[in-house]
Amino acid sequence: MQFFTTQLLNGLTSGVVYAMLAVGYSLVYGILQQINFAHGYVYMFGTFVTASLITSGCPLWLAIIAGLVAGAVIAIAVERFAYRPVRGNRLAPTVTAVGVGLIIENVARLIWTSKIRPMPFPFQTDIIRLGPVVLSPLQIVVAVVGIAMAALLWIIITKTDLGRAMRAVKDDLATAELMGVPVDRVVVTVYVLGALFGVVGGILYGAYYNTLSVTMGFSGTLNAFTATVIGGIGSVWGAFAGGLLLGVLQAMVTGYVSSALLNTVTFGLLIAFLLFRPTGIAGVHVASRP
């Protein structure tokens, strides 16, 4: 039972991280029906900025803010130059996104090299025992940050003028603009929000697994994208649910079967959902807009 509980908590922790990364996909897809394939590279870059600054002695809070700002700036540039000119086109945004993602990754290689490095972060070593349950302080940080970010997202979507505008753009972009919504501003804000969640997720990902690589944009993306599909691509709450489900499943497979099967299970799940339940557990219709 103790082992099960530990694995469950490990899985939930990974799941929160996946969920944070997955939100970037779901926010953008939910509004534009575009899969933001550059997302993984954007949060990778922001995460590296944070890691570099921590390594160079910068205070943690300042390093995190700098990483968030870097992610936001790149997201704005990606939206402006890779997505906006081809908005409405089905195929072109995928090509431009992958292209711009590879550019971001190559720039990151030039700055930080391809070396896999540890992520300097506090709370990584201590252990807390709560009866039979073993926890690291970092797991508590991940949980608290995850809950706080989910609450923030809920407030943004349901309680603010921005959230209302986002939902209006999702329903009918042209009518929203005719009613006075500056659609381009709303869309770029969505990209920035996705990037901010992604960078926070990237920092937690790096800290939790204590490893950073410029390829994390791609590898992190696989889990995050799977979480998004499981949850129902386009649903931010589905992204959270999908992330948690995937995290727990991976932890159980690792704990009870073999970590060698991790990718098999992840991709098996991705394929199974795409084939048999493409709307995900949230039941979001994938192609609601012609």
Partner: peptide, 9 residues
Amino acid sequence: QNILLGGHI
């Protein structure tokens, strides 16, 4: 919410 959207600008 539909009506409030008109006040967005």
